[in-house]
Amino acid sequence: MAEYAGASGEALESARSVLAARDRDLADADAELAAIVSNAHAAATEAIRRLDAVSVEIEAAVAQRTLAAPTEGREFARFLIAKQREISDILITARADANAKAVVLQQLIDRYRVPSTAQ
């Protein structure tokens, strides 16, 4: 009977050890997830701020525009093209950041899955 209790004790200690390791891994994954979500929020907020700034610049330019001469029209068109490129750069950067975070999130999903040996 003592042998059985010893084996059960070892099995219980082994299970506790496995659970403690899993708990540490999940805590690390939680911290990583919180950092990713916080960073994604900051990146989105910054992109929105930059887009709002471009919008204000365009609106101010439109309000002040006086196209009396063709050269002024071309200058305004160059301004608008530059702003379009700036918007495009903001969106490309935001998309690349989102794609990179999606990869990390996929890896986190795998960490949150219950290992097949525990099922």
Rank of each mutant, 00 (worst) to 15 (best):
S55V: 09
A102L: 07
E57N: 10
S14G: 09
G6W: 02
R49H: 04
R22N: 08
R85L: 10
A21T: 15
I81C: 03
A29K: 02
Y4L: 11
A98T: 11
A7R: 10
V18G: 05
E59Q: 13
L91T: 15
D25A: 03
R113V: 10
S38R: 04
R65N: 13
D97Q: 10
V104Y: 00
A15C: 05
L80I: 11
L67H: 04
F79S: 08
A69S: 12
A2Y: 09
I48Y: 00
A94E: 14
E72P: 02
A7P: 07
T93W: 00
I81F: 04
A31E: 13
M1T: 15
R85W: 05
L26C: 07
R113H: 11
E3Y: 07
I92S: 11
V56K: 05
D28Q: 10
S88D: 13
E10V: 05
F76W: 04
K83H: 03
R24G: 09
R50E: 13
S17F: 01
A7Q: 13
S8D: 11
A63I: 07
A96W: 02
T93Y: 01
T117Y: 05
V103W: 01
Y112F: 14
S8R: 10
D110W: 02
S55A: 07
D110S: 11
R22Q: 10
I36C: 05
A43V: 12
V54A: 01
I109E: 14
A31G: 06
N39E: 11
T93R: 03
Q107N: 14
E75K: 04
L108K: 03
E59F: 04
V54P: 00
D110N: 11
V54W: 00
E57Y: 02
T45N: 03
A21V: 14
D110R: 12
V62R: 06
R74D: 14
E13P: 03
V114N: 11
R113D: 15
T93C: 00
R50I: 15
E3G: 09
D30C: 05
E46H: 08
L26W: 08
V18R: 04
G73H: 06
E10P: 02
A63C: 05
V37W: 01
D28T: 11
T71V: 06
M1Y: 08
V37M: 07
G6F: 06
E72M: 08
A40L: 04
I81E: 14
A47P: 01
A69E: 15
A43Y: 04
